[in-house]
Design a protein around this nucleic acid. Structure first.
Lengths: 106, 106
DNA sequence: TTATTATATAATCAGATGCTTATATAATCA
DNA sequence: TGATTATATAAGCATCTGATTATATAATAA
């Protein structure tokens, strides 16, 4: 089934917010829980949760609970139009990557 | 110069509206003047003009006057992240293509 | 010149959007 | 059990956005 132009517009709209696009960029490198995104994006937990909800409703991310934490990961294997675009997103800098590594090892 | 994530978000936001995405889809096949888009999208002239203005401000389209008409065409050769995504846009159907051909020959 | 056609711009407005604050739910720990 | 931690949801609000209507500008035709 071919994707409709309306559905594609909805997906682009989700990427059209810099907070969400940054989230997608981070999740394209590795799965993360909400608290990781809150810290990396210097935002609030409800704000990140609400953005994740929108991404999840559109099928762009999937969640997986592990104890208290819920890990989110990108789900775009079946969305080539997004996959290509996301590959052009700037990668995180060294400093930020350091923060990510530190968080992931805790 | 690498494109920033903010700039990419701005561009995705422009594609995140179904009227504009349809315009981009049509312009990806051939250049058109405002009146063509108005007819094909069954919209009003000011509405189409204002969407074109936003696309132009972001550098996604360029204009070229020919007499009374101003032809717009897509300008994404230098934007690979958009180019790939746009190639996945559904192509117009036979009926619509017929309308386009008829308009272009007048 | 005046009338017509094509396009742009401005003003308005209803509805959508993103963020904050407060609260609820769920898992874990003591 | 109660306390803590992680996450989700709901309400409120200021801002943004897309569409309409009215008007302005520019090119062409009579």
């Amino acid at each position: 089934m071919m994707i409709s132009i309306e559905e594609m517009a909805e997906q682009f709209k989700l990427l059209g917010d810099k907070t969400r696009l940054k989230m997608v960029s981070l999740l394209s490198q590795q799965q993360m829980c909400v608290c990781h995104l809150v810290e990396l994006l210097q935002s609030t937990q409800p704000n990140i949760s609400q953005h994740l909800r929108k991404l999840k409703d559109a099928g762009l991310v999937v969640e997986e609970r592990r104890g208290q934490w819920i890990y989110y990961s990108l789900s775009i294997e079946d969305k080539p139009h997004l996959k290509d675009a996301i590959e052009y997103l700037p990668k995180v800098g060294e400093e930020e990557q350091g923060k990510i590594n530190a968080m992931m090892c805790e």
